[in-house]
Design a protein around this nucleic acid. Structure first.
Lengths: 366, 366
DNA sequence: CTGAAAGCGCTAACAT
DNA sequence: ATGTTAGCGCTTTCAG
């Protein structure tokens, strides 16, 4: 037995009141409105409670009565390992958790695997609202959350009219980054990006697939790259874009390998996340390519490990993102208009970007 | 307005039944026991529900009735940034989340700042059980959880008699690691460790403080080091141990700095976590110390970044740890005996440990 | 300061 | 296959 033995049935507020010979109101007040009864009586109540092993009013019953669950739900439709393995995602989680802690409410992770049409968990979650983090444009779990009579705020994606949302300006941030790369002189570039759709494609992504991506964030970043490079005279058709369904460092490495194998003359690898960039960095090392002398590599997010690795990247305030989402939700009240919060980003030039190797330069490959 | 307008009051199961002219049972069955009513009727129910904007039975009311909250609580007494910034902790979280997802229950993060005596959140959480992750030996939140009439399992620490627990054998794992360092020939070593008590001490930790640590894990690791090094003829009194209250890479760096400033002849730095070790690595680099030629550095946990950095460390299966805790809790049922699950660990020798520099070797300091 | 009464919205026997 | 009945444990007016 991993709990102390309990005599028969668990004590309830009513049984405690009976034992004490007072009304249930009084016991309830002892817990919820200490000022409504004499200190002595309150003390007596609390002592008897302890003696009976009564730990206080049942949270669920209280929630039913007060119509407040005392928790917000976080909907993570990506498979969990995405949410937990990317420090950028974890940062959002942390920020949200902080906001919840401030408000004294719990944060409930609501399961919902991608592709899994089982929306039941969304319906069964006892929460006062949902934060939906980075799900595809047409996610059934999101739809289910919207059905529930509680407020919902979206983080990053999708971008839906009339919905509360918080996220960076992916397009503008990416344009900055792209201009940096263009400014260094790169014209032969490659791109590593994350999942563009719920069907797996660990391969090059066609232009159509890029533009049709079900994930707004990736779509926006790719579009920004396209726009900036075409403005610099680079035909986007000629730019190889490799996609990865999963999102670990190893995936970045394999994507870089795939891209460089086919396009060895590329001088810069632009990655839509730091995780992918970290993998690309590893692959570059494996190939004996010097960064940035032989290859420029950039990321997106500004996670700690990227900073430590000197990665050129776009930093976004992930903690603030989570916090903002929490505050928005918790303060939703009876707001009339929907609110969109755009977070600032910052281009952080590190040691992984530099001018392209010139044609005459000797290539120090393996 | 971030939600579609709802007519007056939210529909309930009862109002839906009334509208349909059927009993509440029937409506309930339509959601919970589809086989208990004709497909046509069920279809009619669901359609009317949609028309009325009824998203299904209220989770809280259902929980009250069924006596199942449908969620497990995770008690993180460390400040949240510890839980979220250390991939080892996040791994536990992920494993637990996976186990919960499997079981179709939510995972509720229950706030409880350290030092914060506000145990209310623990009492207010609507959960069917608690997983308590790595809290100090005498944590009030843990006590509060134990008060509640639900099962509890502890991850890592504290080690309490008669309680379900899952964690590695910290002592044995550390002995292995220490033997590796001893075997390389190191006799002048230093240690960087995590918080030993809830009072902040970002400084050297006395022998007394080490042995009196309120955190079982740190205590066990330090004790194992002491035992192993004394067996090798090293007086533990002479071994500097620097403690850090917070747990970020920068803390590891500053701890290493503090230690090396005072004890420059140390040839190995044993860190009780990878995070600290990563910081030590950075500091070594800053000082121009070559690792492992000038300084051996070891960690503990086996997080991804450590692997990528080639750190010699003890790997523990954090994901499994979380999963095991979840399964243990979810399967608690009416088990009679308490269960303790000890997870395997593995010494992973990387490129950061080697023989000590010999006295004659030139020291390439700054 | 304390008590009595009235549900919150739902499910689970137990009928029919 | 559907309905009737009886609460789950609590909070909250409203009276005393």
């Amino acid at each position: 037995m991993n709990r102390p033995m309990r005599s028969r049935r668990q004590a309830t507020l009513a049984s405690l009141a009976a034992e004490l010979g007072v009304s249930r109101t009084t016991v309830s007040n002892a817990y919820n409105r200490p000022d409504q009864l004499s200190p002595e009586l309150r003390k007596r109540v609390l002592e008897t409670a302890k003696r009976l092993g009564y730990a206080g009013p049942d949270p669920v019953a209280r929630s039913l009565r007060t119509r407040k669950a005392g928790a917000v739900g976080l909907l993570l439709t990506e498979n969990l390992s995405y949410a937990f393995r990317d420090p950028a995602a974890v940062g959002v989680l942390e920020g949200l958790a902080l906001a919840c802690e401030d408000a004294g409410v719990g944060l409930t992770l609501v399961p919902g695997s991608p592709g899994n049409e089982d929306v039941a968990a969304v319906h069964r979650a006892g929460v006062d609202g949902f934060v939906v983090y980075s799900v595809p444009d047409d996610d059934p779990h999101l739809e289910a959350a919207l059905q529930r009579p509680v407020p919902t705020v979206i983080v990053d994606q999708p971008q839906l009219d009339g919905m509360d949302r918080v996220g960076p300006d992916d397009e503008a941030a990416t344009v900055d980054l792209a201009n940096h790369v263009v400014g260094l002189g790169h014209r032969q570039v490659g791109v590593l990006c994350m999942r563009l759709s719920s069907d797996r494609n660990d391969d090059f992504a066609s232009l159509y697939r890029q533009q049709d991506a079900h994930y707004h964030v990736q779509r926006a970043r790719l579009a920004a790259l396209q726009r900036t490079f075409e403005a610099a005279g680079v035909s986007w058709e000629s730019v190889p874009v490799v996609e990865r369904f999963d999102h670990h460092v190893d995936d970045g490495a394999s994507a870089a390998r795939q891209l460089l194998d086919k396009h060895p003359r590329v001088t810069a690898l632009i990655c839509t996340s730091d995780i992918l960039a970290l993998g690309a960095l590893a692959e570059a090392g494996r190939r004996g390519l010097r960064v940035p002398a032989d290859l420029t590599i950039t990321g997106f997010d500004g996670i700690g490990e990227a900073t430590r690795a000197g990665l050129t990247t776009v930093h976004q305030p992930v903690l603030e993102k989570g916090k903002a989402a929490g505050k928005l939700l918790l303060g939703a009240g009876d707001r009339v208009a929907s609110k969109v919060i755009t977070l600032p980003t910052e281009l952080r030039v590190g040691t992984t970007s530099g001018p392209p190797r010139t044609a005459e330069q000797h290539w120090f490959g393996p």
